[in-house]
Design a protein around this nucleic acid. Sequence first.
DNA 1: CTCGCACCTCA
DNA 2: GAGGTGCGA
Length: 311
Amino acid sequence: MTTDAIVMPTTELDLEKVLLSGQTFRWQRDDQGWWISPIGSDGTILRAQQESGVLYVEACGGRAKDIAALYFHAGTSLLSLRDRWLSDDALELAVAIDNSPGLRIVRQDPVECLFSFLCSSAAPIHRIRRCVDGMSRLLGRDLGVHHGVQLWAFPEVERLAGVLRADLDSLGLGFRGRYIGDAARMVVERGGSHWLASLRSATYEEAKLELVQIPGVGEKVADCVCLFSLDKHQAVPIDVHMARVARRKFDECRDVKSITPKAYETFSGSFRARFGEFAGWAQQYFFYAEIERRGLWDQELGRHRPKPLSP
DNA sequence: CTCGCACCTCA
DNA sequence: GAGGTGCGA
């Protein structure tokens, strides 16, 4: 296995920031301090390490450089996005980019992405990680030990389609478990992973319309799948955090309380109206900053939160 | 259309 | 009480 190098300054990619920002749930550090993760169900493994403006990558199951360039949307320059937003008079966004340099959208495997976000409702990132890991251990292909870490591929959707509710009981999915089997069966019916991936060439509206048919998939999850795996850069997932941001930012959102379907469109559409075809990327900056601002990252990632000492 | 609530754990 | 969805009122 060879190591490829991709020139990517930290203003274009901050590996740790991106991998832990709640888009993706399987990355971990190996015994050499590199980031490593299985990608999707086909046995692909990607390893990455960033050093003085260069991204070093290795892969099993393909050419590392190609896999990584796709996975990190290397063709999309944050600097150009920033310029575009600057000239569109979206100054606040240029500032948001400067406050979280190197944050970008990843391009995940659609099946893995769908089932990851199916586990995401009312769950912090560390819990989603546990669920995804559990599904992979239980139903995914054993990929062996790599640089000190045991890896499993994400389960084939056909495998998930055969799963019983009781099989998932041990994984801590909670009520989220009830959707997995039904969702997988619908995807298989439509043509499996090939069908999901084919939505990449559909329009955003078409893709979303298809996704929300899947049991357990509402607008939020559909938008996550669109943005994080189907190349729909204009998809803006709205959760309670982004709704709060929208209320602060846009007049037409100020008095919209709960996230009803109509309200969802108001929130989401406001970002699109203001930030255009890459509104989803804009959303990621505001989302990141909002979690930061509220000091929620430690909680999300399950890091030990130091208890305030008594005086 | 909007509201309220259950859904399973875990923190 | 939770970064959501689906149900009935």
